[in-house]
Structure formats: structure tokens, C-alpha cells
Design a protein around this nucleic acid. Structure first.
Lengths: 141, 141
DNA sequence: CAAATTAGTTGGTAGTACGAACCATCGTCA
DNA sequence: TGACGATGGTTCGTACTACCAACTAATTTG
């Protein structure tokens, strides 16, 4: 069928291994920047702008109580700050500090870079095709 | 430059979100079977047969010392056993117990099932195409 | 205004992960 | 044969991750 040396992985298996690969890139890059994958993920999510705790916990798929600790640790490192909102005094939006912003962008660029490098080695058009299919896949959510 | 036509995600972004999706499936299914994603991953890896600690640590991308603890916990639950080898008394191969085997297969089937379900909703041939591209991607390792 | 809801934190417990130091065994080679 | 380096795993100490139940404070609703 397809001209790979062996046989193609089954669909589920392919997805799992791919995920494993992405996780490893995350782990490697995080470590090189002296942080953890979880903290890196958090920082990258905040690049788009401050986010509230509840919304954040949905984005990273964590219980709110788990998130509190994660944000605590990242805040202790001076990478984010809890910004209180005057309109609703319960909420606090988590925002990157300048230092956190730099780190977040570095992490994001490095991770994207490594993944894109993988795409470059693919046959022409495969990268776009892959992204397109995944986009359709995620649309089912 | 990379003209992501319409709403297609960029390559790296697509991979990261895909990974996130897989992780969530793993987390959900693991929880439903009263275990953790890490332990589930370990169990599934052992379906093919017993594996030594060093080889295992390579497969799950963990330090050997971390793996010792993980195997300890899974062994305490009676799901695996450390089988000592007579030819080399240093090594121990980690093997599934009957109970562990059942759980491992259940986890594997359920996870594969959910991921395959996603594929079914895709346009014809997209699933195979995705698996094929990922297979090529992983071949670069 | 009281009751129900929402946003986030606290405290307790178990699990995850690392590095450095360590023990035992194996293979080698002098 | 016996010292020695390499290999396979474990132990220890530390920090982080993650959950649940219970909680406080502020908001919304009846």
C-alpha cells in the first residue's frame, strides 16, 4: 500500500506513539529551560493573554485544586502573577510577568521548531495533510 | 509564510493538541479502571511479554530510579511481578500477573476503541492516511 | 435579604520524577 | 585467580503533580 519499509501502524497505535513523541519534546525542552513540562504548558497557554483559574483548569484538564499548586510554584519563580479583577472580586486572572513572557516564548518557539523540523523531513505536502486531518479530528470535540 | 488555509492548525500546534487529546483519553480510561495513566502505560507495554527494567525505562522514557518506584506500586497492587532470571542474577524481568494481564488488555482495548472511534468519523481514507504519515514521522527517530 | 452558585484556596494523601550514591553481579584481562 | 570496570537495579532525599473533601469569600437569584 503505502511505501513504508514495514507496515503502517494501526490508527490508535500511531496516535499513542505520536503523543509519546510530543511529550518527549516537551520534556526535553522544558528541562533545558529549567522547568517542568506542566509549568511549560501553563506558560505557553498564557501567551495569548491572562486567563482565569477556572478557564485554565479546563484548558489543561486539571482539577482547580491541582492548578492552584501549579500556579503557586510558577508564581514563586516570578514567571506569572495573579491579577485581581475589580469587577468580580472572586476571580483572579493569571498573567505572565515580563520574565515569564520571555521564557514562554522561548519554550514555545523551541518546541514548535523541533516539531516543525520533523515535518520538513516528510514527503511534500504530508505536513499540511497531517495538520488538516488532525484539525478535522479535533473538530469532533 | 506557511499559509494555513482556512482554519487548519499549524503543524506543531496540531501535534500538540493531538497529544493533549490522547493524554486525556489515557487519563479518562485509566481513572475508570482505578489506576493512573503512568501505570496504565506500563501495563500496556507489558502485554507483549516480560521486559527488563533498563529496557523498560527506555520505552517509557523514565530514569531507572523513577521506574523502580512505578513498578513497586504496580507490583504492590498485584498486577505485575518481578521475575528473576537465572542466567544473569542482576536482571529482573517485569511480567504481568493474570490479573494484570486482564487489566492491561481492558485498558488497551478501551483506549484503542476510543481513538478508533475518532477515526471513524473522518472522511474516507483519512484514518489510514494519518496513520501512514505518522508512521513516516516516527521512522525518523 | 436568604439561599444557591461560582471562584478559588487549604489540607491531607498518594503518586510521579529526578540525581547521587549505592550494592551485587558479570565480564575481562593481567 | 583476583582486581577492575561495566552493567542492572535499588535506596534516599527532594521537589513536583494530582486528587478529593471541605472551606471562605463574593456574586447571583428567588
Amino acid at each position: 500500500m503505502t511505501s513504508t519499509i514495514g507496515t503502517d501502524l494501526e490508527f490508535a497505535s500511531a496516535l499513542v506513539r505520536m503523543s509519546h513523541l510530543v511529550q518527549r519534546v516537551f520534556a526535553d525542552v522544558s528541562r533545558e529551560h529549567d522547568t517542568t513540562p506542566q509549568q511549560a504548558q501553563l506558560l505557553c497557554l498564557l501567551i495569548g493573554g491572562p486567563v482565569g483559574m477556572t478557564e485554565l483548569s479546563r484548558l489543561v484538564n486539571l482539577e482547580k485544586s491541582s492548578l492552584t499548586g501549579l500556579v503557586d510554584r510558577v508564581e514563586r519563580r516570578g514567571l506569572v502573577a495573579r491579577v485581581r479583577d475589580s469587577s468580580d472580586r472572586r476571580t483572579c486572572r493569571v498573567a505572565l510577568t515580563p520574565q515569564g513572557e520571555r521564557l514562554a516564548v522561548d519554550l514555545h518557539d523551541e518546541i514548535s521548531g523541533r516539531l516543525d523540523t520533523l515535518a520538513e523531513a516528510l514527503p511534500d505536502g504530508d505536513g499540511e495533510r497531517l495538520a488538516a486531518i488532525i484539525t478535522r479530528l479535533l473538530a469532533q470535540e
